[in-house]
Amino acid sequence: MKFADVVSGMIGILIGVYIMIQCQSYPEDFVMKIGPAFFPEILAGGLIVFSVLLILLALLGKSIGDFQKLSVREKGTQRVLIAVVVMIVYCAVLKPVGFIIATIPFIMIFMFLLGNRNKLQYVWVPVAITLAVYLVFEKLLVLSLPGGLLSSFL
């Protein structure tokens, strides 16, 4: 039995049920019966049907495909969790701190996570990538990136 399929099926059912409940509060359309709830309700129904099917197939041992386990004890999973946290922090500080200051350490951390141990590269790679992206977007394409702390100098 594929445990993962059962779990994904459950998630699908939960999403479907959540949408069904949400749709109850939507108003009926002014002109006709088919309002904003019509389409999502059908879709939620479809999602639930196929989620149930997935669970049934898994219980019958007819799951297709293969996949690896996800366990917090594994090194890989821990790295992923760190990466996700770093990305969220980056997203949060991007505006107040600014693109350049936020991006250089961001790249360094990811180089480390990906197993780069070349000290010299830590010096120039993050700076080079950051400046290249900055110049292309800001100067060549005239799309403004968050200036943050440096905004009065740029």
């Binding site: 961001f106 790249i107 180089m111 790679v125 993050p126 990538i129």
Partner: peptide, 9 residues
């Protein structure tokens, strides 16, 4: 280790 951070940024 260099390409991936680049893609991410």
């Amino acid at each position: 280790a260099i390409l991936m951070p680049m893609i991410l940024v």
